[in-house]
């Protein structure tokens, strides 16, 4: 089990390096992040054993990322709408 997850991680690393060499236009970042998320999830589920752990541990593991998304989402809500009113500055 550990070894197959390990091989998958190596394969994904190779893919992410290979994909980075191609120009996918707006998809560059989503693809790179998608692969990173997949790799991270594999580590969390198998190496860190969340798959076999209690629902509480799963909730805790997810909550960190949910809170991160709140920080990112709301802050970018400011940066992305700054130009809308045409105020000088950003």
């Amino acid at each position: 089990m550990c070894v197959s997850v390990f091989l998958a991680l190596l394969v994904f690393t190779a893919i992410t390096v290979w994909v980075a060499g191609l120009d996918l236009g707006p998809l560059n970042t989503p693809v790179a992040l998608g692969i990173a998320v997949t790799k991270g999830t594999l580590v969390v589920l198998f190496f860190m054993g969340v798959r076999w752990n209690t629902p509480l541990t799963k909730t805790v593991a997810i909550s960190g990322f949910v809170w991160l998304l709140i920080l990112f989402g709301i802050t970018m809500g400011d940066y992305l709408t700054r130009g809308w009113l045409g105020v000088p500055g950003r």
């Binding site: 809500g77 400011d78 992305l80 709408t81 009113l85 105020v87 500055g89």
Partner: peptide, 10 residues
């Protein structure tokens, strides 16, 4: 941040 340069929509 109301009086910083924060977006008015935010």
């Amino acid at each position: 941040l109301f009086v910083s340069s924060q977006s008015i929509y935010a």
